[in-house]
Design a protein around this nucleic acid. Sequence first.
RNA 1: GCCCGGGUGGCGGAAUUGGUAUACGCGCUGGACUUAAAAUCCAGUGGUGGCGACACCUUGCGGGUUCGAGUCCCGCCCCGGGCACCA
Length: 829
Amino acid sequence: MKTYDPSKIESKWQEIWAEANLYKTDEKSIKPKFYCLDMFPYPSGAGLHVGHPKGYIATDVSSRLKTLKGYRILHPMGWDAFGLPAENYAIKNKVHPRIAVEENIKRFKSQLKIIGFNYDWDREINTTDPEYYKWTQWIFLELFKKGLAYQSYEPVNWCRGCKTVLSNEDLEAGKCERCGGEVEQRPMKQWVLKITDYADRLLYDLDREDLDWEEQIKEQQRNWIGRSEGTEINFKGNVQKYIEGKVTTADFDIPVFTTRPDTIFGVTYIVLAPEHPLVDELTVPEFQASVKEYREKVKKESMLERTFEGREKTGVPLGLAAVNPINGKEVPIWIADYVLMDYGAGAVMAVPAHDQRDYDFAKKFGLDIVEVIQPEFENERIQATYQAYTGKGTLINSGEFCGITSREAEVYITDWLVENNKGIRTVSYKMKDWVFSRQRYWGEPIPIIHCEKCGAVPIPENELPLKLPEVSGYEPTGTGQSPLANIKEWVNTTCPKCGGKGKRETDTMPQWAGSSWYYLRFIDPDNNKELVDPKKEKEWMPVDLYVGGAEHATRHLLYARFWHKFLYDIGVVSTIEPFERLIHVGLILAEDGRKMSKRWDNVVNPDDIVKEYGADSLRMYEMFMGPFSQSVAWSTNGVSGVNRFLTRLWSWSQSVIKAKEGQSTNSELVLKKTHQTLAKIDGYYESFKFNLAVASLMELLNFLETEAKKQEVIRDDAYTEALRIFLLIISPLAPHIAEELWRDFGNKESIFTEKWPEVDSKLIKEEVYTLVIQVNGKLRDEVTVPIAIAEDEALRQALDLEKVKKWIEGKQIVKHIFVSGKLINIVVK
RNA sequence: GCCCGGGUGGCGGAAUUGGUAUACGCGCUGGACUUAAAAUCCAGUGGUGGCGACACCUUGCGGGUUCGAGUCCCGCCCCGGGCACCA
């Protein structure tokens, strides 16, 4: 008998499939389409570890299933190859990042190939290919033309020691990872995309019925967008200025944003973000030194740490007061780091009685605390003496508004403010505009020319792609600009508009850019005339299934949705959303439960697993190890278990193939169990419960082997059908062994040209079931009953059982609960 | 700190709407085969007590709702992902 040797059959079938173009995307047939997409990898220098292919295996299983079900498949793969690590590697090893990236891609690709994916490699793309990034640049220019790209001063991490901009990744506990020096937040003129213009659409379209996304991902996006309706309230004041020796008084306005206008009578001070542009103007001379010192200190803090709620509060007063528009009361103005410039108006009205951070701040600096909301319950009232009461309630100490509820006050107080021109209703978002500039070499050049006369001018479309120039080194310039700024002959150019002197933009795009539209390129990878052929776009969009890590839940997926909606607005795409169904893949941790990392020396390489156990074992194990979306620790022993299973499948299949023909006595049972598995497994595949799919296949084989031990296997219609179905339903998970046994079985064509089997519902019907008997909710016995058994008959049979009698004896039956198909519970007292 | 997940045997995990807790796999123990080992096959395997039939306990911790809670509610603890320049 042939033995199961994956190393022999897997490479053989991979070659045959490739030669036969089995996985080439079918552009012609009238079959329904299935666009199945993986989040494409960043080809790092470390190569693939076993965690990478988990999601790819899932899309491979899904697309093979859809192939069997009669769909035509688009299942492509490519490389998201711009980015920081390649540039750092280039600096360190003095090689061009392109060379490093090419090597990495080669390695990744060979590692993927031996796992036996059904990718159409003719559609491979690479974001660093000029023919690709031409269109990334094109989209940027369209955004620019529509006013959605603008320049603004945005903070970057600036290391004084290295004289360079640092990524968050390069920081360690707020200090520079390389030199250990201080890092400060330094404003720098950068390109920013107006994603906030799309905030409402990005939010509301999450609720579209045709968007089949996991709720948790949608919820994360909603929170990221952070829409809140509120009121912008204007606090006025005046400041004395000395101009040319004379004292003059100047009025000022401080607009603040609040979602709680009902607490306005409780305002006891105003806090500005330390970066607020009004701070210079509003600081009285005696306080200037302390304000300056405080602002310097805040520069060194990261945004993340500033927002920690339990953190020790800091801040300094400006020495001025502003007037509460509702009661004319003067309140002092402070600056404090817990107020951020980029949320709301960069200024808050502080209500210490009803906001915890304001409360902590007021306690620390001895500011007034005025209670204006009375809680509904007394215990909350008691708590309010040592912490803020942040709930709603009834207004007190609020002038003419006393006695009404918070909900009413939100309407009436805002109405009053609007009528008296002291406030407006407005909406604020947590989501900020997308800072799109990077001061680095290895990214798409931003196709803009700065002209002294004309300002920022886009380069003409026919000059795209604007290629990255070759440079000799990638070291930072020392000024914070990207290495491109050092190439004078590239930077200095002429203005496309006036023909005068112009300078090229030297910042490049973030890595997110190329990945924000790549799913469109796969549809039409060689198109140089337009981004995507509209006909082909309509044929393949939207992506039917998108699989990738949860770490992309907010940024990548929001950026891609934003660009897609923009492309929809300018008529490039025809769907409102790019990804119809989204599933997130859970991490594979190392055997020790930690993340796989070179640092811990716990990385498992898929090549080694394929070599020892075969690709089918790797594929099936990764689908079996746990719920797909959950992170699970790797176990090489687990792989050997799956390998044992495949070996047993091989032997059983061979025994059927070699068996003599005739009529077996257990054919009915064999068919029933096989069809029951078939009925289950379809749902398991569709709902990404691959672990249960594998378990049900194992159960089926356990059953078939047990039957084979009871009596000799005879090749009759039932066994023939059981083997046929078994191979078909396992083929998405383990394509190589399925194909090999399929051909051994006498089939001339590939198993993937076959049709998915249909469930025979007559076969799987059960006539009896096990009725569980409980007394007071505890399991006491069970009995086999006909499926249609009536309640009183079930009760009669239950009460007849010795084990049940024992528990009922001397007690009174209060009632019983009968759940048809499940159990009967007898309640006694 | 904030947002999103998760916590079930020695381990990974299973358990449609609240209805037999521990499917499937790993590991372990004993046995068969073998000169021996590996591989394979057979049997056992949540805990405590008992020779045994059996009984009681058990889903991170503490309460609650219910005939019945891993599942629902309230309050905690612990772990993972994200927090805008890693991708």
